[in-house]
């Protein structure tokens, strides 16, 4: 069976499972799928929401892909994006009276630095102590979320709420204006990031080092790659990329950081990177695919219960994973 046949089969299996569950619940699969499509790609607002939801997924998908190409699995996207989002909210709020040309880069930079700092701890643990990054990045998620709750209560949140003060207008990323949807120009940021990452990985010396590291660490070292430095740098860059998620949620949509804003995209980014085979340009359509499911899930939740929708999402990820698993080696 070819890879394409496998992928088609996997999606057919996922769809059949979903249809069965819908029938069980007493809903017509045709009606459910029809509503899902109509409310995502079928109207302007839905399309805008798909773009909005795809942006964080693209950024975390890129973050995971970048680390993965160097042979590392960054499971800390949740913590990195949360720290980045809080930093963007706080710096953005402090930018009153500062022109956009300064305020926006500062806010974006704050997010990247915060995401990078969160990833720095697993990076140091990895190169100094040999701690496996899967364990340390996932544990950092809990540390960061706990810290954010604490910082929020210590005065970062507006009284009687769980969000920070509003950001200055100059730090906001303008909306795309698609029928009142939450989509903003942060979409363009994600596209630029994908293209930039593609060029760096494919064309640059650093990119070559990363790919060599991912293919065979020992051989890369023998070939003159500074393994420790590249590994640490890779995790930092991956964290910084995840730290950019707030551009879409904080600067482009809410205008403040709210507890839990963007959560979930850190883990979904792993599925996005998997579907894209770790290729930056393929991350964009993969993010659109999962964003369609995610917003579509909301649209159909008046017809079927949330739990069924969650099961369907899980089945899709499982099916995609199974169909792609044998090709993992080839993607490197």
């Amino acid at each position: 069976m070819s890879a394409i046949e496998r992928a088609i089969l996997a999606l057919l299996a996922a769809m059949a499972t979903a249809s069965l569950l819908f029938l069980f619940w007493g809903a017509s699969p045709v009606e459910v799928y029809g509503l899902l499509l109509a409310r995502t790609w079928g109207d302007a607002y839905g399309f805008g929401q798909v773009l909005f939801k795809a942006t964080p997924l693209a950024l975390t998908g890129l973050a995971v892909s970048l680390a993965w190409r160097g042979g590392l699995l960054n499971v800390g996207g949740e913590g990195q994006l949360a720290a980045g989002s809080l930093a963007m909210g706080l710096v953005g709020a402090a930018m009153t009276g500062v022109p956009a040309l300064v305020a926006l880069p500062l806010a974006l930079g704050a997010g990247m630095v915060a995401g990078g700092v969160v990833a720095a701890i697993p990076a140091v643990l990895k190169v100094r102590a040999g701690a496996h990054e899967v364990i340390s990045t996932i544990m950092m998620n809990f540390v960061v979320v706990g810290c954010i709750g604490f910082i929020g209560r210590q005065g970062a949140y507006v009284e009687a709420t769980v969000h920070t003060a509003p950001i200055a207008p100059s730090a906001a990323i303008p909306s795309l204006g698609i029928a009142g949807s939450a989509a903003s120009w942060a979409v363009a940021l994600a596209v630029c990031a994908a293209v930039a990452l593609h060029v760096v990985l494919a064309r640059s010396r650093v990119g070559f080092d990363v790919r060599a590291l991912g293919a065979q660490a020992a051989a890369a070292e023998a070939g003159g790659v500074a393994v420790a430095r590249t590994t640490a740098g890779l995790l930092l860059a991956s964290g910084a990329m995840a730290g950019l998620v707030g551009a879409s949620t904080v600067l482009g949509y809410k205008g403040y950081f709210e507890d839990g804003l963007g959560s979930g995209s850190g883990f979904m980014g792993i599925a996005v990177a998997l579907l894209a085979g770790g290729r930056p340009l393929a991350v964009l359509p993969a993010a659109l695919f999962f964003a369609t499911l995610s917003h579509g899930a909301l649209a159909i939740s008046t017809l079927v219960p949330r739990e069924i929708v969650d099961v369907v999402m899980g089945v899709v990820i499982l099916a995609v994973g199974l169909s792609l698993a044998p090709r993992q080696g080839a993607a490197r």
Binding site: Q49, A182, Y253, L261, S263, A297, L298, A299, V309
Partner: peptide, 15 residues
Amino acid sequence: VEPGDGSDRESALRQ
């Protein structure tokens, strides 16, 4: 509607 994540709240209300 049961939203999937925080940013779904507004979207669900609007829907």
